[in-house]
Design a protein around this nucleic acid. Structure first.
Length: 723
DNA sequence: ATAGGGTTAG
């Protein structure tokens, strides 16, 4: 390849065959230095071929040899701009874009002007270097304008690309709109630019404008648009593009095929995606990754895994897809295992992989693992990236270390809305409603605009802390002051807030006042409140409404049977259970896990799978006896089924968190803290049990349930028994 | 110039 590009240059050389040959075969900087000395002695100006060769070699990608190359250039007998521009372009082809910018800076300072072929080079480099490059892009744009070159379509296209790559899509669009001649590449850069900046709807709109102005899209443009549709889960627009492709008889290459597969798998249409994928031969990495992603998103994690396992030559992206698949389908342990495997194979993660890994760690709530991931993040230079810091804040909150979360939060100079919201969520989860509200006030005083998620967090903070008036005020403020439209989730939070505070009638009226039909989330919140307060009549009504909306809503059946059980209506309990059985509705099984010395131990109810099972059950007996001495008596009121009292007692004593606690007590000392996580809500009896255990055994017990943390200490829980 | 993976809540 290099020989080919050097042919014309070699032909232009003065008759000095041996020197020429030496240039073409040189491979190291010392070697080049020798030749350079020889060139200077010969008095010939053959810097151009010399530099071309020097810059084409991989060694030009190290700072010291780049330095050398530039110094040769700047000290050549007549450093003219043609040579400088050639050097710049040679440099840009194979190296880190940052050095192209360094070289550009040196050439500028030496007073060498850019030609029209170098502007795009520098702009492309600037576009690839995020962060510091905005200034460069603007400067280069200004420079092009000064020399009148900004009317050149190639330069204009590059300017559009640079702005959009830096997230300044609107500025890119302004340049694009002023272009007199737009070829397909220009359209492609603008469309892709919108996608890069996350402006997918603008991309779709521009695509329509493009078609109505009579420009015929090619495969490249169509692949870009399909990708935009995939990312926005827009099957309507995507399907239209697919039809267009079929109607126009366009041949479908691997890129386009992958884009189509990705569209359908992103939208959850796995049947169509699978059909297209079956037609693909050979299977390519991108299409396979899209399939893995699609199945994982639907929870068909085993299917995803089997495709993943069949892939040879896995790259970073498919590892990430599989890892995030596990992370998002509540298998954080598997996600971390896979990350380890990838790590051992020497595949280097990027920030996207790390976000999935951090999120997996957060969902697992494992503190030792969390620490390990944090160290990994620091060591590998990810710690300055804002999205990573945001994920870390969330991770530490969910692992029970609010202090660590707070530290990262405080040490984050530039905070975006997610940073603030994550911190608010952290306080909300730990029942610290006042701190959550204080963080919100701080956020507002810093001029950061809250979004819908921020308000969900705030309302949950109020709900978990019993701050009813504050919650009402925030809901109003969201509409009045921030002009945000409350969605189902917000109404659900409000119903939860009112319901927990025993304001059941007001909660019902609130639902009836909604401007749109309430969904399962909203009714579900009220149902939960009915269970807490034992309102059988309202609970029954709500559960029926819920089951009308979703006949397979497992939560509704469970809560309904709970309510009946609480009222000892065993006949009704049986009916509900039968109904569940007939419909094949399965109650989500409760399980708990505890991390001890870096290992995660999982427990189901009555679980005897643990290798130290005997020891654990022995400890549990002992614990129960000791707690009974201080007045504990199993609260069997919440046991769903009509069992004999003795059976009920046994059932409740074998809840998974009690097993986890027993192991925790065996393996820890007095005065230490025990961290347990559970996938569903903690029951009344376990809650009392934990409170007493914290006092009798002198441990702080931190229990994370589905939505929040309980910190038990000296017989008291941080939730104030309000959860 | 093009296709695949990501952070806050639920």
């Amino acid at each position: 390849m290099e020989t080919a590009t050097l042919q014309p240059l070699a032909a232009a050389l003065p008759p000095s065959p041996s020197l020429n040959h030496r240039i073409l075969t040189a491979t190291t900087v010392p070697h080049f230095k020798q030749i350079h000395a020889q060139i200077l002695r010969s008095g010939l100006d053959i810097s151009a071929p010399f530099l071309s060769r020097l810059l084409a070699l991989p060694l030009a990608s190290s700072p010291s040899s780049l330095d050398y190359a530039l110094s040769v250039l700047l000290h050549s007998p007549s450093p003219d701009f043609r040579l400088a521009n050639r050097a710049l372009r040679a440099l840009s082809s194979a190296t880190d874009p940052r050095w192209t910018l360094v070289a550009y800076g040196r050439l500028r300072r030496a007073g060498l002007a850019l030609d029209r072929f170098s502007f795009p080079t520098v702009l492309r480099a600037a576009a690839r270097v995020r962060g510091v490059a905005g200034v460069v892009a603007q400067e280069v744009h200004g420079l092009a304008a000064k020399t009148g070159l900004d009317a050149d379509p190639f330069i204009q296209t590059a300017v559009v690309g640079a702005y959009t790559a830096l997230g300044r899509a609107a500025e890119g669009r302004m340049v694009f709109d002023r272009m007199h001649h737009r070829d397909l590449v220009a359209w492609g850069v603008m469309l892709d630019g919108y996608c890069q900046s996350g402006c997918y709807n603008e991309a779709l709109q521009l695509f329509d404008e493009m078609k109505s102005s009579g420009v015929i899209p090619d495969r490249v443009i169509l692949a870009t648009i399909l990708s935009a549709c995939a990312r926005t889960r827009n099957l309507t627009s995507g399907g239209a593009v697919h039809s267009y492709i079929v109607e126009s008889n366009l041949s479908i290459d691997a890129h386009l095929q992958s884009a189509l597969i990705s569209l359908y798998s992103s939208c959850g249409s796995m049947d169509t995606a699978q059909r297209l994928y079956d037609d693909t031969s050979p299977k390519n990495l991108v299409a396979s990754t899209a399939m893995v992603f699609g199945y994982a998103k639907l929870g068909k994690i085993a299917v995803a895994r089997s495709i993943f396992d069949q892939m040879t030559d896995k790259d970073l992206v498919c590892w990430s897809a599989m890892i995030s698949g596990y992370a998002e389908s509540d298998q954080p342990n598997e996600a971390l295992k896979l990350f380890n495997e990838m790590h051992l194979l020497g595949v280097k993660p990027d920030q996207i992989t790390m976000l999935s890994v951090i999120s997996a760690c957060a969902n697992m709530g494992a503190r030792d693992q969390a620490k390990w991931v944090h160290i990994f993040v620091d060591k590998n230079g990810f710690h300055q990236i804002l999205s990573i810091r945001n994920a870390l804040i969330d991770m530490y909150s969910k692992c029970g270390s609010l202090v660590d979360a707070r530290t990262i939060f405080d040490e984050t100079a530039f905070k975006d809305v997610i940073t603030w919201t994550s911190m608010i969520t952290g306080f909300a989860m730990h029942g610290n409603g006042r701190s959550a509200l204080a963080v919100f006030d701080h956020m507002i005083s810093e001029g950061v605009k809250p979004n819908g998620v921020t308000f969900i967090s705030l309302l949950y903070a109020c709900s978990h802390a019993g701050l009813v008036d504050e919650g009402r005020r925030i809901f109003e403020s969201m509409i009045q002051d921030y002009r945000l439209e409350p969605k189902h989730e917000h109404y659900g939070c409000m119903v939860d807030l009112l319901g927990r505070a025993r304001l059941l009638q007001e909660a019902l009226e609130f639902i009836e006042s909604m401007p749109f039909a309430p969904n399962v989330v909203v009714w579900g919140s009220l149902l939960g409140a009915c269970r807490i307060h034992g309102d059988v009549k309202l609970g029954e009504l709500v559960a029926r409404r819920l089951l009308e909306l979703d006949p397979n809503h497992d939560g509704a059946y469970v809560l309904l049977s709970n309510i009946y059980a609480k009222a000892s209506r065993w006949e009704d309990v049986r009916e509900v259970r039968n109904l569940m059985k007939n419909k094949g509705v399965i109650k989500e099984a409760g399980f708990s896990w505890i991390e001890l010395n870096g290992h995660v131990h999982e427990f189901m109810m009555r679980d005897k799978c643990h290798p130290r099972s005997n020891e654990i059950y022995g400890k549990l007996d002992e614990v129960v006896k000791e707690l009974e001495l201080v007045g504990y008596s199993p609260d069997t009121a919440t046991v769903l089924v009509d069992l004999q009292e003795e059976e009920k007692r046994e059932a409740i004593l074998l809840h998974s968190e009690k097993l986890a606690l027993s192991l925790g007590l065996i393996d820890s000392k007095k005065g230490s803290s025990i961290h347990i996580a559970k996938n569903i809500r903690v029951c009344n009896d376990c809650h009392t049990f934990m409170k007493l255990a914290s006092k009798v055994f002198e441990r702080e017990i931190v229990l994370r349930d589905r939505t929040r943390f309980h910190h038990y200490k000296d017989g008291v829980c941080s939730c104030g028994d309000f959860w």
